[in-house]
Computed example of a mutant assay.
Amino acid sequence: MTGALEAVRARRSWSKVTDEAPTHIELLTLVSAAGRVADHSSLRPWRLIELRGADRERLAQAIAKAEGDKSPSSKPMRAPLLIAVVASYRKSEKVPRWEQEAVASGVAHVLSLLLDEAGWGVIWRTGRYTRSKPVAKAHGLEKNEELLGWLYVGGKPVRSRPGRRKGVEARRHVSRMPRAKKQD
Protein backbone atom coordinates (compact mmCIF):
# COMPACT_ATOMS: atom_id res chain seq x y z
CA MET A 1 0.00 0.00 0.00
CA THR A 2 0.98 3.62 -0.37
CA GLY A 3 2.29 6.17 2.09
CA ALA A 4 -1.15 7.82 2.08
CA LEU A 5 -2.71 4.74 3.70
CA GLU A 6 -0.06 4.68 6.40
CA ALA A 7 -0.44 8.43 7.00
CA VAL A 8 -4.20 8.04 7.47
CA ARG A 9 -3.76 5.03 9.76
CA ALA A 10 -1.23 6.92 11.89
CA ARG A 11 -3.30 10.10 12.17
CA ARG A 12 -4.63 11.11 15.56
CA SER A 13 -5.92 14.29 17.15
CA TRP A 14 -3.53 16.21 19.42
CA SER A 15 -5.49 18.07 22.09
CA LYS A 16 -2.27 19.39 23.62
CA VAL A 17 0.55 20.81 21.52
CA THR A 18 3.78 22.72 22.08
CA ASP A 19 4.41 26.37 21.17
CA GLU A 20 6.09 25.51 17.86
CA ALA A 21 4.12 25.92 14.63
CA PRO A 22 4.68 25.69 10.89
CA THR A 23 5.73 28.91 9.18
CA HIS A 24 3.43 30.78 6.84
CA ILE A 25 5.41 29.45 3.84
CA GLU A 26 5.20 25.86 5.11
CA LEU A 27 1.46 26.29 5.57
CA LEU A 28 1.02 27.62 2.02
CA THR A 29 2.76 24.56 0.59
CA LEU A 30 0.39 22.22 2.44
CA VAL A 31 -2.71 24.26 1.59
CA SER A 32 -1.75 24.14 -2.09
CA ALA A 33 -1.83 20.34 -1.92
CA ALA A 34 -4.97 20.17 0.26
CA GLY A 35 -6.84 22.31 -2.25
CA ARG A 36 -6.77 19.42 -4.71
CA VAL A 37 -9.76 17.69 -3.07
CA ALA A 38 -12.68 16.69 -5.28
CA ASP A 39 -14.48 19.91 -6.16
CA HIS A 40 -17.48 19.70 -8.51
CA SER A 41 -17.20 22.52 -11.10
CA SER A 42 -13.93 23.69 -9.46
CA LEU A 43 -15.80 26.32 -7.43
CA ARG A 44 -13.18 26.41 -4.65
CA PRO A 45 -15.95 27.18 -2.10
CA TRP A 46 -13.60 27.59 0.83
CA ARG A 47 -10.98 29.76 2.36
CA LEU A 48 -8.70 29.51 5.36
CA ILE A 49 -7.81 32.20 7.88
CA GLU A 50 -4.45 31.95 9.63
CA LEU A 51 -4.60 33.10 13.28
CA ARG A 52 -1.41 33.65 15.27
CA GLY A 53 -0.49 35.87 18.24
CA ALA A 54 -2.88 38.80 18.69
CA ASP A 55 -5.38 37.25 16.25
CA ARG A 56 -5.98 34.49 18.80
CA GLU A 57 -6.58 37.12 21.49
CA ARG A 58 -9.19 38.83 19.30
CA LEU A 59 -10.86 35.47 18.78
CA ALA A 60 -10.79 34.86 22.55
CA GLN A 61 -12.70 38.11 23.06
CA ALA A 62 -15.20 37.27 20.31
CA ILE A 63 -15.90 33.82 21.81
CA ALA A 64 -16.41 35.41 25.23
CA LYS A 65 -18.90 37.85 23.72
CA ALA A 66 -20.73 35.01 21.95
CA GLU A 67 -20.87 32.99 25.18
CA GLY A 68 -21.89 35.97 27.32
CA ASP A 69 -18.67 35.81 29.36
CA LYS A 70 -16.78 38.83 30.66
CA SER A 71 -13.30 37.27 30.49
CA PRO A 72 -11.69 36.28 27.17
CA SER A 73 -11.91 32.58 26.37
CA SER A 74 -8.73 30.57 26.90
CA LYS A 75 -9.62 28.18 24.06
CA PRO A 76 -7.76 30.00 21.24
CA MET A 77 -4.60 30.01 23.33
CA ARG A 78 -4.31 26.21 23.32
CA ALA A 79 -2.20 26.23 20.15
CA PRO A 80 0.20 28.72 18.54
CA LEU A 81 -1.58 28.48 15.17
CA LEU A 82 -5.28 28.27 14.49
CA ILE A 83 -6.56 27.83 10.97
CA ALA A 84 -10.17 28.91 10.57
CA VAL A 85 -12.00 26.77 8.02
CA VAL A 86 -14.56 28.81 6.11
CA ALA A 87 -17.17 27.52 3.68
CA SER A 88 -17.39 30.27 1.07
CA TYR A 89 -20.49 29.39 -0.92
CA ARG A 90 -20.68 30.18 -4.64
CA LYS A 91 -23.78 30.56 -6.78
CA SER A 92 -24.19 27.43 -8.85
CA GLU A 93 -27.00 25.67 -10.68
CA LYS A 94 -25.13 22.36 -10.48
CA VAL A 95 -23.46 22.34 -7.05
CA PRO A 96 -25.75 22.56 -4.02
CA ARG A 97 -24.73 24.28 -0.79
CA TRP A 98 -24.21 21.00 1.12
CA GLU A 99 -21.75 19.80 -1.52
CA GLN A 100 -19.78 23.05 -1.29
CA GLU A 101 -19.59 22.66 2.49
CA ALA A 102 -18.35 19.10 1.95
CA VAL A 103 -15.52 20.46 -0.23
CA ALA A 104 -14.50 22.95 2.48
CA SER A 105 -14.58 20.14 5.05
CA GLY A 106 -12.54 17.95 2.72
CA VAL A 107 -9.85 20.63 2.39
CA ALA A 108 -9.68 20.92 6.18
CA HIS A 109 -9.39 17.16 6.64
CA VAL A 110 -6.72 16.72 3.98
CA LEU A 111 -4.82 19.69 5.44
CA SER A 112 -4.97 18.10 8.88
CA LEU A 113 -3.52 14.87 7.43
CA LEU A 114 -0.74 16.77 5.67
CA LEU A 115 0.10 18.74 8.82
CA ASP A 116 0.18 15.53 10.85
CA GLU A 117 2.41 13.80 8.33
CA ALA A 118 4.73 16.85 8.37
CA GLY A 119 5.17 16.32 12.11
CA TRP A 120 2.67 18.81 13.53
CA GLY A 121 0.03 18.09 16.14
CA VAL A 122 -3.47 18.95 14.90
CA ILE A 123 -7.03 18.83 16.20
CA TRP A 124 -10.18 20.17 14.54
CA ARG A 125 -12.24 22.13 17.07
CA THR A 126 -15.75 23.48 16.75
CA GLY A 127 -18.38 24.84 19.10
CA ARG A 128 -21.77 26.51 19.04
CA TYR A 129 -20.07 29.90 18.81
CA THR A 130 -18.69 29.07 15.34
CA ARG A 131 -21.99 30.34 13.93
CA SER A 132 -22.26 33.36 16.23
CA LYS A 133 -22.23 36.96 14.99
CA PRO A 134 -19.29 38.14 17.16
CA VAL A 135 -17.07 35.29 15.96
CA ALA A 136 -18.12 35.73 12.31
CA LYS A 137 -17.40 39.45 12.58
CA ALA A 138 -13.96 38.84 14.11
CA HIS A 139 -13.12 36.62 11.12
CA GLY A 140 -14.46 39.11 8.58
CA LEU A 141 -16.94 36.61 7.14
CA GLU A 142 -19.12 37.66 4.23
CA LYS A 143 -22.86 36.90 3.95
CA ASN A 144 -22.14 33.87 1.76
CA GLU A 145 -19.73 32.34 4.30
CA GLU A 146 -19.88 30.12 7.38
CA LEU A 147 -17.17 29.19 9.83
CA LEU A 148 -16.86 25.41 10.12
CA GLY A 149 -14.28 25.40 12.93
CA TRP A 150 -10.54 25.69 13.45
CA LEU A 151 -7.57 23.44 13.04
CA TYR A 152 -5.44 23.94 16.15
CA VAL A 153 -1.81 23.34 15.15
CA GLY A 154 1.40 23.10 17.16
CA GLY A 155 4.35 20.88 17.91
CA LYS A 156 3.74 17.29 18.96
CA PRO A 157 4.72 16.85 22.61
CA VAL A 158 6.85 13.88 23.61
CA ARG A 159 4.65 11.06 24.88
CA SER A 160 5.57 8.20 27.13
CA ARG A 161 3.35 5.94 25.05
CA PRO A 162 1.86 6.68 21.67
CA GLY A 163 -1.88 7.21 21.48
CA ARG A 164 -3.67 5.43 18.69
CA ARG A 165 -7.21 5.67 17.54
CA LYS A 166 -8.93 2.33 17.09
CA GLY A 167 -9.57 1.27 13.53
CA VAL A 168 -13.07 1.31 12.13
CA GLU A 169 -14.96 -1.96 11.76
CA ALA A 170 -15.44 -1.40 8.02
CA ARG A 171 -18.03 -4.17 7.56
CA ARG A 172 -20.40 -2.22 9.83
CA HIS A 173 -20.25 0.81 7.53
CA VAL A 174 -20.19 -0.70 4.03
CA SER A 175 -23.19 -2.39 2.47
CA ARG A 176 -24.63 -3.21 -0.92
CA MET A 177 -27.59 -1.57 -2.54
CA PRO A 178 -30.83 -3.43 -1.69
CA ARG A 179 -32.22 -5.73 -4.33
CA ALA A 180 -35.05 -4.43 -6.43
CA LYS A 181 -38.46 -5.68 -5.34
CA LYS A 182 -40.41 -7.74 -7.84
CA GLN A 183 -43.30 -5.83 -9.31
CA ASP A 184 -46.67 -7.56 -9.39
Rank of each mutant, 00 (worst) to 15 (best):
K75D: 10
A62K: 00
R159S: 06
R58E: 04
K94L: 10
S15E: 07
G35V: 12
E67Y: 00
L115Y: 06
R52D: 09
I25H: 11
W120R: 13
A180L: 13
L151N: 03
D69G: 00
T2I: 01
Y89V: 12
E67P: 00
A33I: 15
S88W: 02
V85Y: 10
L151E: 03
L81Y: 06
P178Q: 00
G68D: 06
R56E: 09
P76K: 09
G106Q: 06
L59Q: 06
S71A: 15
V174P: 02
S112D: 11
A4W: 10
S175D: 10
D19G: 14
S13W: 05
W124H: 05
K156N: 02
E67K: 07
S175T: 12
A34I: 08
K91V: 09
L81N: 08
A170S: 09
V107E: 11
D19K: 12
L151D: 03
H40N: 10
A4C: 10
A136D: 12
G163A: 06
S88D: 15
R161S: 06
A87M: 07
S74A: 14
I83F: 04
R172A: 14
T23R: 07
R159D: 03
A64I: 08
A138N: 04
A33H: 10
M177R: 12
R97A: 13
E146F: 00
R131D: 11
D184M: 03
V158S: 02
H173R: 09
M77R: 09
S41C: 09
H109Y: 08
V135F: 00
E99I: 11
K156A: 01
R164W: 04
G68E: 11
E57A: 13
A38P: 08
V168R: 03
R36Q: 11
A108Y: 00
A102M: 13
W150A: 00
G140A: 03
K75R: 14
G127L: 08
R176M: 03
W124F: 11
A60G: 14
L30H: 02
R58D: 01
S175C: 05
T29V: 12
R11H: 13
S92W: 04
E169P: 02
A10F: 02
L141S: 01
S160N: 10
G119K: 14
A34N: 08
E142C: 02
L115N: 07
L111R: 06
V37R: 09
V158R: 03
A7W: 08
M177G: 00
A118N: 10
S42G: 04
K137D: 15
S32K: 15
A136E: 14
G127D: 07
R172E: 15
G167N: 09
L141K: 01
T23C: 07
R90A: 11
G154N: 04
R9E: 15
Y152D: 03
V158K: 04
G155I: 04
G154I: 04
A60H: 05
T126I: 08
M1A: 14
R12S: 07
K16T: 13
R176S: 11
N144Y: 02
K70A: 12
P72R: 12
S13T: 15
S41M: 13
K182E: 14
P72N: 12
I123Q: 11
R78S: 12
T18W: 04
V17Q: 09
H173T: 05
T29Q: 13
L48I: 13
H24W: 08
M177N: 05
I49D: 01
P76G: 09
W150F: 07
A33S: 13
E26P: 05
D55K: 07
K137I: 05
E117Y: 05
R176D: 10
L111V: 08
G106M: 07
